[in-house]
Design a protein around this nucleic acid. Sequence first.
DNA 1: AAGTGGTCTAGACCACAAA
DNA 2: TTGTGGTCTAGACCACTTT
Lengths: 263, 263
Amino acid sequence: MSPVHRTPQRTAPGDRALDPVTFALDRSSPVPLYYQLARHLEAAIQRGALVPGDLLGNEVDLSVRLGLSRPTVRQAIQSLVDKGLLVRRRGVGTQVVHSQVRRPLELSSLYDDLESAGQGPTTRVLRNERIAAPADVAAALGLPEGAEVVVLERLRSTHGRPVAFLRNHLPASLLEPGTVRLESTGLYRLLRAAGIVLHSARQSIGARAASAEEGALLQEPEGAALLTMRRTAYDDAGRPVEHGSHVYRASRYAFDFQLLVRS
Amino acid sequence: MSPVHRTPQRTAPGDRALDPVTFALDRSSPVPLYYQLARHLEAAIQRGALVPGDLLGNEVDLSVRLGLSRPTVRQAIQSLVDKGLLVRRRGVGTQVVHSQVRRPLELSSLYDDLESAGQGPTTRVLRNERIAAPADVAAALGLPEGAEVVVLERLRSTHGRPVAFLRNHLPASLLEPGTVRLESTGLYRLLRAAGIVLHSARQSIGARAASAEEGALLQEPEGAALLTMRRTAYDDAGRPVEHGSHVYRASRYAFDFQLLVRS
DNA sequence: AAGTGGTCTAGACCACAAA
DNA sequence: TTGTGGTCTAGACCACTTT
């Protein structure tokens, strides 16, 4: 049996040289074996060597061919199942998911979103200073009211036209973001560069009509529909790291993502 | 050493009877052992027996105390790490995450959302018929243009006031949803009851101003800000199962969820 | 130096689906 | 009946963090 099958069946004999599953592991690398395998399979899927519906060979054969134990192979496969790229069916096998999977919803910055969409975002920092925390911000960040926080206000544009107005608050003890850097990258990248590891975020997406000031900033008429997003991000230890309150031009932006069903 | 530690340190001696980690496994149950352990730990966290910051005992001790192998214990712990309830640090240990974790974003139906919030949703079915698929729907569902689909239009309310207008299209071959059932439950529950297993969905959230008809339906003035959601859901085999195009009153609804950072 | 999680092995038996 | 993934064991060695 050849290790990859198309529906309803099999590849031509002599395909083993093109077998997209078997490959050379680097056992001297510090990269874990299961991770090497996962990346290899993912690449094979991305470049189309494994087509939706294809069955991977069964796990036992696979582990023999690769010289790995079955649990290690399973660990690799499981990570791709978790990503939504593969589906396992008992008694059937493991196959590549049919639908075009895009990335699941990530805690990504708007900057990265726009950049990866080739939108060449620009940022104008309107405000960057230390203030006493307003009540709602203090509550969101778990700080005593009046504690010192950094407030950032930024206008993000693509193609010279505004997309979003971003207001963020950070505990002043955490980071003193430089205005210059903020104009050339995203806040989350600055946090990561400062060694702050994000773990989770609580987020709320809504809509409302634009105020006169918001309209002026975003070049929308007063009363235009805006998307709003409020988010508090936490680090590994559960400490609030950042609270953001953003508004987006609905005519130029939407939240777009893939969900996986919890199982 | 007692198995649970508070910061900076330990519970009183004699606490072993209250040890929130050790418990009795049911080896005769068909429920997997790792799953029993995961549920037990999750319950201990939810009821506060394990407090944020608490360290679980190390994995080797734990497996000995529970009479399980270490991989099985790891499998249980890993599932809770994936859920965002626990954090592991090499050289340190596994501890309960500080922040209050709510559920991550799920592919849940609005009906379930409102019901679990105690809002007692009601549904009025405005339309339930078979039609030839419009071009955009056919494209989303991967059907030839003009193929037969079921179109549903529903108005969902809580406390007697409308919250959302839901328009859904399904391949007619898949399901013939009964209007009566649709008034008493959510579409996704009907799909599940029909044996349709959802796997993933592609979703886009935006905003726009209400049209005159939308305003009349939702009891909002024309031009009011509305939240919009377009979603296509897929089953295990990657077949499109449903396409929804919904509008929500921004004054009464927001998308509210927790994100975990991919790692 | 000691203790933790991270990785890996080489088996075993079971549950489920398809032929 | 056969083949698949699902679960589980009892070890091993390594990398990292803290003392």
